[in-house]
């Protein structure tokens, strides 16, 4: 056997094995999680404060100019009156869903209780959608960390829909010229000095806008209070002088969701029932993008490996075509 070829094959096999890496060192291929931007803006959603009024859903629809949604099977009993989207979709960027159990007697209790949960983009610190988009249509602001979408760039491959661990980006399947819809944290309102519509209208301060660092402090402060104590819950933007909403501190789950999940999110959740019951899945601390980008960057770093492979292939192909008279 040709020595060169053997050497090449050994090298290629080694490169491949080294690139894809032994099983246990799969973690080693990960790159580091990305870090929270310096002026990261976010939201603290407190499920125990939410009364399920859906003012945020209405305000969101108005602010973002998306229509009322009525799935075909709910249109019968609800002729043109209520928005009855079942989840976020191409026409609903934000919705309130409900967890129920048994007799649904008491709010924020997992046994025979119920709880509301707001659903929209969590603005991940290390977002999968930004990592997977082939045409940079998903962008994360370097300063505020808000994840926005540029429909002019988007080719509609829907990899972001497929890849988002929260199922947030949604494609408008019922449109001839559909586009990807997702919460962009009312970036257009923020440019005018306003705050996201949902936080603006929330009557109880369940959706609270602010800097992620401040919101995290607020969340921890709530957790440190004694249940039953009166507490002044801020409304609108944390730090503004809006009237507060005074209520008793509920029985919180001791976990602030979004601090570590998939490398952290800029929307944080407090709740009275375990977060998984509210459709917020248990997720690892490592961002999902860190593995796929880690592998991809290892394999294609500076295109060295593919070019080396190409070099070998060129050599071998040239040899073979010379040998075969009828090479093609």
């Amino acid at each position: 056997m040709d020595k060169n070829r053997r050497r090449f094959l050994q090298g290629a096999a080694g490169a491949l094995a080294g690139a894809v890496a032994p099983v246990e060192s799969a973690q080693a291929l990960r790159r580091e999680n990305k870090q929270l931007p310096p002026n990261a803006l976010g939201m603290l959603y407190d499920s125990t404060l939410c009364i399920g009024c859906r003012a945020c859903v209405t305000a969101c629809k108005e602010a973002n100019d998306v229509p009322v949604e009525q799935p075909a099977h709910l249109r019968e009993w609800n002729v043109g009156v209520w928005d009855s989207g079942e989840d976020i979709s191409g026409k609903t960027l934000n919705t309130i869903r409900v967890f129920t159990h048994g007799t649904k007697e008491q709010k924020d209790r997992s046994e025979n209780g119920y709880a509301f949960i707001k659903r929209h983009c969590l603005h991940c610190v290390d977002p999968s959608c930004v990592s997977v988009c082939p045409v940079s249509a998903m962008l994360k602001d370097a300063d505020t960390g808000i994840v926005t979408h540029n429909p002019d760039a988007c080719i509609g491959c829907r990899y972001c829909v497929y890849g988002c661990p929260f199922g947030v980006p949604q494609y408008q399947f019922d449109e001839t010229f559909g586009k990807i819809a997702k919460c962009q944290f009312c970036e257009h309102l923020q440019k005018k000095g306003q705050i996201p519509a949902c936080c603006d209208v929330c009557p109880t301060g369940a959706s609270l806008f602010g800097l992620v660092a401040d919101l995290q402090k607020e969340a921890e402060q709530r957790l440190s209070q004694k249940p039953g104590d009166r507490y002044e819950f801020p409304r609108g933007r944390l730090g503004d002088d809006r009237p507060t909403h005074e209520a008793a501190i509920p029985e919180y789950q001791s976990h602030v969701y979004g601090v570590k999940e998939v490398g952290g999110t800029q929307i944080r959740y407090l709740a009275g029932v375990p977060h998984e019951k509210l459709g917020l899945p248990k997720l690892p601390d490592e961002s999902y993008a860190s593995l796929s980008e880690g592998v991809q960057h290892t394999l294609y770093k500076g295109m060295i490996a593919p070019l080396a492979l190409l070099g070998g292939l060129l050599y071998l192909a040239r040899r073979s075509t010379k040998q075969h008279e009828d090479g093609e």
Binding site: P134, V135, A153, I155, C157, Y159, G178, E293
Partner: peptide, 27 residues
């Protein structure tokens, strides 16, 4: 299958390129 097929050529425009994306490389 592409939802916004008329933008397909964006894959070839360098200013939209996103080399971290596996999809980009596949395309």
């Amino acid at each position: 299958d592409l939802g916004r097929y008329w933008n397909f050529y964006n894959l070839l425009l360098p200013w939209y390129a996103q080399p971290s994306s596996v999809m980009f490389e596949v395309a």
